[in-house]
Computed example of a mutant assay.
Amino acid sequence: MFDVFVNTISDLWTTSGLAAMQWQNWLMIGISFVLIYLAIVRGFEPLLLLPIAFGMFLTNLPMTEMFHMDFFVNKEIDFGQVMKNGGLLDFLYLGVKLGIYPSLIFLGIGAMTDFGPLIANPKSFLLGAAAQLGIFVTFVGAVMLGFSPEFAAAIGIIGGADGPTAIYVAKSLAPTILGSIAVAAYSYMALVPLIQPPIMRVLTTKKERAVVMKQLRPVSKTEKIIFPIAVTLVVSLIVPSAAPLLGMLMLGNLMKESGVVDRLVKTAQNELMNIVTIFLGVTVGATATADYFLTFQTIKIIILGLIAFGIGTAGGVLFGKLMYIVTKGQVNPLIGSAGVSAVPMAARVSQRVGAESNPTNFLLMHAMGPNVAGVIGSAVAAGVLLAIFA
C-alpha cells in the first residue's frame, strides 16, 4: 500500500510542470512579469503589452502543450501537425501566420483615422516617407551585422513604429524572432514621448520649433471618400504586397467617411478591434519561448529596433528642416517627427515640443498629416520588403 502511494506521488511529480521547469523557463516567466508590471503600473501600451506578456507567460509554462513554435518556423505552415497535435494557442496563431489579425487591426485603425489633415496638405506624404528612413538604414546595418536579409528586413520594420506592420512582416520573413520584434516594436511605441523629444531638440533650433503654420484648409466629404479608393488603387498597382494591410486600412476609412454604415464602423472600432487585439497579443507573446528569445540575437534586435526608430524620427525632422528652408520658414520641422506611424502619440509629441518654444503654437493638426502618412508609408515599406524577400 505504501509503495502504491509512493509511486502515485512520484508519477504526479514527473508529470507536473514543476519537474520540467528549467532556469530558462523561470527567467522567461520573470521577463513576462516585468512586462505585465510595465503594462499595468506604468501604462506602457497596455492594450497590447498586457496580452503579449501573458502569452509569453503561458508559452513558457512547461508541459501545457498550448503552443509549438516548431510548427511555424518554416514559411509553409504544417497544417497536419497543427490539426493533430496543436494546442489552443497554435490554432489562434494561425490568424497571425496567415496575416489575418494585422489586416483586421488596420481595418479598425482606418475606421478611427481622419485623413483630412493629409488631404489638406499633401506635402505631408513626403514627411511620412522620409520617416521610413530608419527602416532601410537599419536593414543595411542588420545585414552588415550578420543577419540574413529576411531577418534584417523584419528588424528594420520596427523603425516604422507600427506594431501590426512589424508583426505582419516578421510572421512571413522571420517567425522565430517574432516575439522579440513585437516586444521591441510595442515597447518603443510606448516610449515615443521619451525617445523622440531629445532627437527633435538636437536637430532643430528654437526659432524653427517656434514656427506657427497656417491653418489647414477645410476638406470636403467628397475628397475624403475619393482618397481611400484612390490610394488603394495606386499603391496596390505599384506594390501589390502592400494591398492586404493598406486595403483594410482604406476600407475602414471609407466606411467611416461614407456615413452610411455606422454599425459597421462602430464594430470595426470597438468589438472587432478588441477581439483581434486579444488574439494577436496573446499569440505573438506565445512565440517568445526560451529557446528563441533567450539569445544574444534578441539583444541585438532590441538595440537595432531603437536605432531604427531614432533614425526614422531624425529622417522626418531633417526633411522637415528642408521644407522649412524651401518654404522660407512656413513649415515647422517638428511635424516631421510625426512621420512615424505611432498614431496619434507622435503627433502629440510634436505639439508638446513645439509648445515649449511657443506656448501659443498649435501643431497637432499639422502633425496629424505626416502621422497618418506614416501609417501608409510603413505599409508600403512592408510591401516592398515582402515583395523582395518573401
Rank of each mutant, 00 (worst) to 15 (best):
F293Q: 00
I36F: 12
L38K: 09
N60Y: 04
A338F: 07
A210P: 07
L94Q: 11
A154R: 08
G259C: 08
I109Q: 01
I119E: 05
P197E: 10
L191H: 05
G377N: 11
S148K: 09
G116F: 07
M213F: 13
Q269R: 13
L145N: 09
V282R: 06
I335F: 00
A210F: 14
F125P: 01
F2D: 13
L254T: 10
F293E: 01
T287Q: 03
T298Y: 02
I105A: 02
G141T: 06
T176A: 13
T138F: 08
T15W: 12
F279L: 15
T64R: 09
P175F: 00
T232C: 10
A373W: 05
I119P: 06
P359I: 01
E45C: 10
Q215P: 03
L48R: 04
I311A: 04
S258Y: 04
R42T: 05
G312S: 08
A185D: 14
P333T: 13
L98N: 12
M112V: 09
T138A: 00
I109R: 01
M213W: 14
I303L: 14
L194G: 02
T295R: 10
M56E: 02
G179H: 00
L126A: 14
G99I: 05
F33I: 14
Q215V: 13
A242G: 04
F67P: 00
I229M: 12
T15A: 11
L127I: 03
L12F: 15
A288G: 05
F5M: 10
L94K: 11
P193M: 04
W13V: 10
F71E: 03
V276R: 08
H366Y: 06
T267R: 05
R201E: 08
M56S: 01
P117R: 05
S337W: 01
I278G: 06
G134R: 05
D262L: 05
Y292H: 07
E223Q: 13
